[in-house]
Design a protein around this nucleic acid. Sequence first.
RNA 1: GCGGAAGUGGUGAAAUGGCAAACACACUAGCCUUAGGAGCUAGCGCCCAAAAGGCUUGCGGGUUCAAGUCCCGCCUUCCGCACCA
Length: 833
Amino acid sequence: MAEEKELRYDPAVLESKWQERWTADPALYAAEPEQCGKPKYYVLEMLPYPSGQLHMGHVRNYSIGDALARHMWMRGFNVLHPMGWDAFGLPAENAALKNNTPPRQWTLANIAAMKRQMQRLGLGYDWATEVTTCLPEYYRWNQWFFLRMYEKNLAYRKKSKVNWCPDCATVLANEQVIDGRCWRHEDTLVQQRELVQWFFRITAYANELLEGLDKLDGWPDKVRTMQRNWIGRSEGTEVDFALEGDDEKIRVFTTRVDTIFGATSVQLAPEHPLVSRFAAADPVLKAQVDHLIDEQTRAREAGDVGAIEKHGVDTGRYALNPYNGERVPIWVANYILMDYGTGAIMSVPAHDERDFEFANKYGIEIRRVIAPEDSVQEAPALPFTSESGILINSGSYNGLTCEQAQKQLQQVAARNKFGKATVTYRLKDWGVSRQRYWGTPIPMIHCERDGLVPVPDDQLPVLLPDQVEITQQGGSPLSRVPAFVNVTCPKCSGPARRETDTMDTFVDSSWYFYRYADAKNSNAPFNPNAASYWFPIDQYIGGVEHAILHLIYSRFWTKVMRDLGLVQNDEPAARLFTQGMVIKDGAKMSKSKGNVVSPDDMVVRYGADATRMYALFAAPPDRDLDWQEDGVAGVSRFLGRVFRLVMRYAPQARAGRTAQPVAPTGVSLKLLRKLHQTTAKITLDFAGRWHFNTCVAAIMEFVNDMQAADAQLSAGEVPAHTMNELLRTLVLLMAPFAPFLTSELWEELGETGAVLRAAWPQSDPQLAREDELEIPVQINGKLVTVIRIAVDADRAVMEAVALRDEKLQAKIAGRSVAKIIVVPGKTVNVVVK
RNA sequence: GCGGAAGUGGUGAAAUGGCAAACACACUAGCCUUAGGAGCUAGCGCCCAAAAGGCUUGCGGGUUCAAGUCCCGCCUUCCGCACCA
């Protein structure tokens, strides 16, 4: 009876035993010093926001990363596998309002809870390098970087239209506005406000950020494409149109300067400064323009900017085309964006769809200036937007190709100083000011005498005060804390005011992974030597939702740090993996849908191993995963089978550790062959394909084979040495996926030391090789029969064996065989007429 | 509208031009029992009463001895971008 009881797989008991051991042994998952001589491997998962609860997306993300880390440990690498907390941000302030708990206390309690969850899941992190971004030890370096960027003119202040989220009561960066809505409040429309804000000059790196993407071949194409589109490089020409009867010029941006002889109007954005000037002198125009702006604002707030119909107003003024002096009317149009290019365009209706639509609506002249290159068709349908064409109606430029004309027209503009070739980006500078409390204070001081004065380095960190009243009223909560605001100017010692905005939390996550390399440093953000050893990150793993937020900011920050001499790498991560979402019943898990599955529930019911392994088994990691609790139960039952299998034969396996090897035959050979095939498959998958779902399936197949051979196993047909190899390797192969169970079984097999420090098994190709194959035989590509042949059978043998087959004979009788295709090791296909 | 990904049993999925549905879940039948969210055996794409046989990877074409896989067109779903001059 006692023996039977031993065979019960009880994850609750087994897992808590190992969790205690691992907590008592922090060295187990610790990175080693550079001198250890092993090759380094830095595997990183995106750090979570400490909401207080891990969700299934985290479990999936971290199960993937942990499996990889464990595999690399077993491959003998010096692995850095850290974890931290993206701990600043608005939810802490909301919680403070709701529960009357200070943000700091709330956040730290959440971190403690989530850390417990991670430990309960058995995730192998090096907690000695833990980073918590809301602590002064960390955020002081945000301030330090801010000052360095200010010195290099990469941080600056300007008044501009900014995105304002009424729910966050703060501004948002462009990247944080999704479809006109706040990235945190998907039902909240973002408003536009004019405010003075701090910006990081990410556009200074626009081109490098773009070109670097070509070299990031370890990143998914999807992410690279998204970043390319976001940066939106566009080569074109700026041209000045003179304003008739005025000294003012109107600078337009165009990618098609070759069509400029077809420009029949100039179009200004409603917010263009010249428009306000015209409107000031013309009340009717002002009313019309206000209407345009109004309509645009309302469209934006309704969330369908793109759907709005094109409208415009004729200003009654004229501009002069600098190439031929032609007089063209100036319009204000609602489809011209002030914050792209120069906020003004030349309108060429014949060769641009939007201009065509607009000109038709208002009866503006449409003049063809490009003819198709092949000239088969003299007058193709308008608008004709192709760039392979020949200029017509363009004075001395007639006959040039579009490309030639662009070059020449640019040269002429430059020579006569009315324009130049230029590059425009869609990417805007990163607005980092936030009118919130729970973030990094911006280390600047406003002095009446000296203006903007940076906080001297030796006065860092500017500490975030406790005991601040949080309100949702808007305006920085810090501005209502006199002890924080009122300071003396570092330059003149006169009275001055601190900057009261805090930094965007994406600042924190832009460089946290460098801090892991040297987390305790109190003299610098990190030691450059530590960074040069560990960077770039070998594998970064996270959700695709950060493709153009965190991941573009991080790339920018790395380049800034490189130019500061802190790091040598150009890019933060050599390889990026974006895992799919975890969904339930076909929908994203969310509280409002009531389909949230709690990781804690899963762990309590089925154990951490089963929960993690299911997360890997249910779908390939890059695809969405539909969470089915029955599936977790299934994996748990499988782990139970493994547990009982190993426990039952552990005594033989232990005896086999010192037994003499015997040449395997019969069932031993069969099982060893399957084992070595499984080893080869899993090893290959870790190297790149990452189809962990089929890795788990392969392990299940092997275990099924072992179980099917149970009669022979219990009859002692497998020698002890072989039994040891079978069970020992099984445990090793499962170790990255089920750390608790494999640790227990490793010990049960008489092994000492941590299983994750044991060497990853090697597949012997000789042993893995089948000696006979089943080969499909087809007639005209349709399956007829299956033959067995030796693995090394040549074409002639395969053909002969196939033709001898009765089924085949019956089918080809009386028909003429035109051809026989033989693919060694694959198939025989008889082509008959 | 543009760009990308996907579409295979009741479900999650597998198959890198060569036997479609591995591995699981669910279900069905049976066995066992210490009655457990347990274990074991068998069945399980569709059509046909069964067998024999036929059919089957969103739809339609094509390439090939051979197509879930490659090419062309279309449909659907999801994701990203969306007046970017």
